[in-house]
Design a protein around this nucleic acid. Sequence first.
DNA 1: TTTAATTTTTAGGTTTGTCTAAAAATATAT
DNA 2: ATATATTTTTAGACAAACCTAAAAATTAAA
Lengths: 220, 220
Amino acid sequence: MYSQAEENYLKAIYTLEKEKIGFISTNNIAKKMQTKASSVTDMLKKLDAKKLVVYERYKGAYLTVDGAKEALKVIRKHRLWELFLVKKLKFKWDKVHDIAEQLEHIQSEELINSLDAFLGFPKTDPHGDPIPDRNGTVVHEKGLSMLKMKVGQSGILKGVRDSSKAFLQYLDKKNLSLGDKIKVVDIEPYDESIHIETKTHRLSVSKHVANNLFLQPKKK
Amino acid sequence: MYSQAEENYLKAIYTLEKEKIGFISTNNIAKKMQTKASSVTDMLKKLDAKKLVVYERYKGAYLTVDGAKEALKVIRKHRLWELFLVKKLKFKWDKVHDIAEQLEHIQSEELINSLDAFLGFPKTDPHGDPIPDRNGTVVHEKGLSMLKMKVGQSGILKGVRDSSKAFLQYLDKKNLSLGDKIKVVDIEPYDESIHIETKTHRLSVSKHVANNLFLQPKKK
DNA sequence: TTTAATTTTTAGGTTTGTCTAAAAATATAT
DNA sequence: ATATATTTTTAGACAAACCTAAAAATTAAA
Ligand SMILES: [Mn+2]
Ligand SMILES: [Mn+2]
Ligand SMILES: [Mn+2]
Ligand SMILES: [Mn+2]
């Protein structure tokens, strides 16, 4: 049984490892955790002692197999709770993250597995992120970034890279939701902004936005 | 926003005040909280400083209006989560308390009110305890203790005084559930044990058990 | 390759909530 | 009323998780 703080560090390191392999630096973790580097050093020593990370002075740390397993448990809980909030309690997708940050620390195998069953053993959370199963197995096909799509190609919006409140609200405003069929109709050479088309409307999104959208390309 | 420890103390004092009016003693609180009297003294000073209790040296403490309000918020959350676990996740009534002890500390007005709506604004939890509404209003008609019933009288089992795992499992074993219609058929003069009859079976319960059962008497 | 800038660690504190042991106050018994 | 027992408080420590400021190590620049 690990403390909330420990769980949060493991989760942070796990997500940082998705972006960059090898040792994750103290400052990097500090930034993600909104804390000070000195606090991170303290915690890394503790997690190393518990064999959840490998920590080396002045290099940083990476998760051990046990550490990654723990991180995935927390992520599983986080995503199941987010889905519960959206699917059962009718929360908007931009309102669930903060509450899930609390719920992810509830300790009960039975609870989380019952919740999983209650939701019908879902594969993805409200932002398109995969939900690890009870064994910690996680599939990671979030789709292809919209940036990689060619003109004329279309696909289903499967997920977002950035699930910040701001980005989610931007998508709401533009009437884009997971599951929408989107076609790339044109790419502006000047700024690489992308003209897209859904069943109901057309619009243009910046390169930055396109980078944060994952599509499952339609094979024709 | 109060800490989990503070919330637990408030809840403990609240329930102790149901049993005994006036100052609640340090030792009494320590016993309920499974902690040491010295720790309680520390906490009572803190809660007094925050105007959640009135604490007097060598006398004990009682809740202020604000303190009682906070306690009721926690109790509301506890009971709604217990009901969620039973009604939606199919937990048995003897398995929900410990998990609710964790869930009751999740901080989100929106969450708890959505959960309330999701459950259909229930009036009672799985043990027959009343659920305070969002304004903190709580009805407390749990019914009449079975001890007070006369021979020949019958009523509906509405709640339990003791919701320990042991007692709940005893009731399961004896096939007694909330909602059952129960008739007092005889009272043994020797030990005051009570012979009762339900729709499906007859049995005898001790005075101690009868004291822990609340019935809503049938008016004929 | 020195020097300067950045990153990381250490040293020493703080807050929260707990504990043990001893002192003080209150309650009970003779 | 005095002695004894019980309860409660104080004093001093401790662990977890954080902080600031200074020292040490590493990296980048001149
Ligand atoms: Mn999230
Ligand atoms: Mn968290
Ligand atoms: Mn309970
Ligand atoms: Mn209950």
